[in-house]
Structure formats: structure tokens, C-alpha cells
Write a protein that binds this DNA or RNA. Sequence first.
DNA 1: CAGAATTAGTAGGCTTGCTTAGTATTGGCC
DNA 2: GGCCAATACTAAGCAAGCCTACTAATTCTG
Lengths: 145, 145
Amino acid sequence: MERRVGTVLAQVARLMRRAFDERAREIGVTRPQWQVLSVLLRHEGIKQGGLAELLEVEPITAGRMIDRMQEAGLVERRADPADRRAWQLYLTGRGRKIIDRLQPLAVETSRAAFEGVSEEETVQLLHTLDRILENLTGKPAASDD
Amino acid sequence: MERRVGTVLAQVARLMRRAFDERAREIGVTRPQWQVLSVLLRHEGIKQGGLAELLEVEPITAGRMIDRMQEAGLVERRADPADRRAWQLYLTGRGRKIIDRLQPLAVETSRAAFEGVSEEETVQLLHTLDRILENLTGKPAASDD
DNA sequence: CAGAATTAGTAGGCTTGCTTAGTATTGGCC
DNA sequence: GGCCAATACTAAGCAAGCCTACTAATTCTG
């Protein structure tokens, strides 16, 4: 019984990513990349380490994603004037435009996944997941991602 | 609001995998590999395609995992006498022994993640996730994986 | 100020997931 | 029986995670 939860959780997460990626394929952006774009929209100039922390991902993972997204012209690395080891991250015009196109796809994907799930159930789900997130990270719920 | 759910779901799933893998590292088995072992325990002789379907994963993904697990001596491929294209999958003695060591780690991981989450909340969570799973797969809830 | 410890990021190498494209075998249909 | 579609699996190549190990810069401490 306890085991099922982790398994189902992993499955649901994977299938949702798949559903989103399917819709976003023609735009050429993956779900994790969309998360990065979203964070940058609200945190212009954030450093890679900060991005990694918000995404709850290792710095190297964030760094490699930025490599690819820079290559694709979605984001820009600028030298941090105050710390020569660090990069500051910015959206490009192209990145900004693409977010607008991804937003409806995300809503569409969520809508399909949550068909027949009540508002109340969704809120409850989110509440439980936040609690688990706290347990796993040792931090209070981010509410930011 | 709708977006948060997908994001949090993905985060929780990833962090739970991380928590499990951390505990299981010394045994040398990953969470997805443990899922495979679990399925084989209940479905001896299943074919790769069947395994892939139970895991909700593409056949090639399952095939590559079996490659590595066979290499590691956890599972065995036997020719299907009725179909020369197919393999039948079996646990090795080593694979069987390792499941016994992994089980407590899985319980441990779940316990840590669900600290402070009531039994009722857990049941509700599972119910909602099953519903989403149905929406995403188009099939009735597996209850097996 | 010098040296040590911390911090920011990268390099290499692994697993898990995917897509697209292929081979080999099976099974249905005429 | 012969052809063709479907099925079972594999190959190549990519993204996203991870760990361990490294470099370079900053900061702390004596």
C-alpha cells in the first residue's frame, strides 16, 4: 500500500511530462525547459545556482540545460559584474515569445489530466504534495518553483 | 494554480526517486530497476513488451533496462519457445535476494516522505492520482504495476 | 596580507526516458 | 501457399537527471 504511492506518483509525473512534450514538440521546447523559462520570467538575472535551487535540481543539471537553451537562443548568460565565477541568466526576446505559446499548452495538458477531478480534490492534492515536498527538502513549501 | 500541480508533482516524484536511490546506492540498484524486479516477482516469464506496458514505458526503455540488469546478473532472458522474436524474463537468485533487501528501504523512504500525512490523506492522494493516471493512459487504473 | 575553506560553475560518465528508423518473425487474407 | 500488415525487439541519438572530481574565484581567519 505504501509502495504503490511512490510508483503511481512517478508514473503520473512521467506521463504528464510526456503529454506536455507531445504538445510542445513543434515548438521545440521540453517541459523542464519551460520550467526554466518560467523561473527566469520572474527572476531575471538569477544565477545558475539560484535557478538550480528553485528547481530542486543539482547545479550541473541546470548548467547543462542552460547550455542547450543558450544554443537554442532561448536564454542568455551574462557575466556577473560582482562575481567573476558566476553567470546571470536572462530570457532572450525569442524565449519570452515562446513562453506565451507554451502557456496554453500547459493549461491544455493540465485540463486533460485533471478531467473529472474536482477543484476541492485538486486543492487537497496540492496540499498533500506540498507537505511531502517539505519532508523531502527540509524546507517550507516554496510556492514559487 | 493549475500549473503548480504539474510542477510540484514532477518535483515530488524526482525527489522521491533521489531519496530511494540514495538509500539503495550501496546495493547498486535504482528505483526503476526495483520496479522491474517487483513486476517480475509477480509475473515470471513475462515478455519485454508486457513489462513495458505494466511500467507505462516504451518498449525500448524496458529493453535497455533489461540489458543492464542482465549484465548485473539480476534478471535472465530466456527464448520464448512459441515466438522466436520474443524474450521471457526471469529473476535470478541474486535478483530475488536483492528484492528482500530493497523492500525495507522502500518502506523507509515512503515513511520519511509521508511523515505527518494522515492515512486518510494518503488514500485520497492515491485515489486522485489513479484518476489522473486513467485520464493519461485511457485505461482503467492498473492496481498492479 | 597569506593561506585555508567555501562557493560557482564545468567535465566526464552513468541511468532513464524519449523519437525515429530498422530487422526479424508471426499471423491474417486471398 | 504467398504476400502484407502487424508485432517484438534493437540501434542510434538526444534530453534530463545524477555522482564524483576538477578549476577558478571569493571569503574567512589568523
